[in-house]
């Protein structure tokens, strides 16, 4: 590898991972309240699949099962996948996604601590490219009929017209791209009763839940405050700047911060210790880069939310970021970094 250790291992991986899971609970609670308990089914499905896949691959690789299974990292990946996939997606979609994450993105690259890409985000990208339609069918806010959601997940015959609703991000992009409608951001978000005026009804509360959990993680010392701050500040600044130029065509910072996966990305995805940058300055660049790319993909791209693609793109840059932000080696008189650059 290029430089300093990729993983800064705290005393116990499992303690950290379970705190991360606990921090997701407020967001999940809001999710259940606004979009029904279907998400709990997806989380259960994802967790079982992740543990089974992890155990199977560990057995094949001849690694001790108990030690690695108990660390909880597979569970975190599984929960993130469940939370980023539509909660009414058919069961096999999430199972396949988790398999991609655990088998391909994690273990083919060497297992925990070795994977250059965030496994949950790899799963999202693979599945949205493979099944764009299924991955764009989100439940409408306020739809909490568990039986209908159960049928959507496990039923062979999926009648979704009553359930499916465009997410605020999708609706915004769709309408703004039609020149003849002369739509404005305010018109789309404000006139439509199904969207709240911050991040979309329901979604903004889920985002608040993630925010609360994330702040608790910072307070517990599990994640550093720099990554989420850099992420949210960048996303806020860039969306704010464009909204100042033309508020009719570009949604403002409050919308961007409280919709889609922004909060999840800031506190739970960009903070991944394995696939993120290791240096302090590097982490800030990494998080800011994800936020910038997310905004670009959301505004001009072809796929719904941009967090996953942005994360993978920045994952690729991590070795470079780390190399460029390394502190000079202690004791060197020239003050040159190992790669010969003047600091």
């Amino acid at each position: 590898m290029l430089n300093s250790p990729y993983i800064t291992k705290p005393a116990s991986v499992s303690a950290v991972m379970f705190k991360v899971l606990a921090a997701l609970l407020p967001g999940i609670a809001a999710y259940v309240w606004f979009f029904g308990a279907g998400i709990l089914l997806q989380i259960a499905l994802a967790s079982i699949t992740a543990l089974a896949a992890e155990a199977a691959v560990l057995a094949m690789r001849g690694k001790p099962l108990g030690l690695f299974l108990k660390d909880g990292s597979a569970l975190v990946t599984a929960w993130l996948i469940a939370l980023t996939f539509p909660s009414i997606a058919p069961w096999w979609l999430i199972v396949l996604g988790v398999l991609v994450a655990i088998v391909v993105a994690k273990h083919l690259y060497g297992g925990l601590g070795q994977n250059p890409f965030n496994p949950a985000m790899v799963a999202f990208c693979v599945m949205i490219v493979a099944y764009p339609q299924l991955m764009s069918q989100w439940p409408a806010a306020g739809f909490t009929d568990f039986a209908a959601e159960f049928r959507a997940i496990f039923g062979a015959d999926r009648h979704l017209d009553a359930i499916v609703m465009a997410t605020p991000l999708d609706a915004l992009r769709t309408v703004l791209r039609l020149p003849e409608t002369r739509a404005t951001v305010e018109g789309v978000l404000g006139s439509n009763a199904t969207f709240g005026n911050i991040g979309g009804r329901g979604w903004e509360w889920v985002a608040l839940g993630y925010l609360a959990g994330g702040l608790w993680l910072i307070q517990q010392g599990v994640i550093s405050w720099r990554v989420p701050t850099a992420f949210l500040a960048t996303l806020g600044l860039i969306s704010g700047a464009f909204a100042l130029v033309d508020a009719t065509q570009y949604a403002g910072p409050t919308f961007h911060l409280f919709t889609g996966g922004a909060m999840l990305g800031a506190f739970f995805i960009a903070t991944d210790p394995v696939s993120g940058a290791t240096t302090v300055r590097g982490q800030i660049i990494f998080a800011a880069g994800i936020a910038l790319l997310t905004w670009i993909i959301r505004t001009f791209g072809a796929y719904p939310d941009g967090i996953a693609f942005a994360t993978l793109l920045m994952n690729i840059c991590v070795p470079l970021i780390d190399m460029r932000t390394q502190r000079p080696v202690f004791g060197r008189k020239t003050g040159k970094t190992p790669d010969g650059r003047q600091p």
Partner: peptide, 15 residues
């Protein structure tokens, strides 16, 4: 069979 579109798209070739 719902298909696995990514296999037909360029990324699938690399995998």
């Amino acid at each position: 069979y719902p298909g696995f579109l990514i296999a037909i798209l360029p990324p699938g070739a690399f995998f």
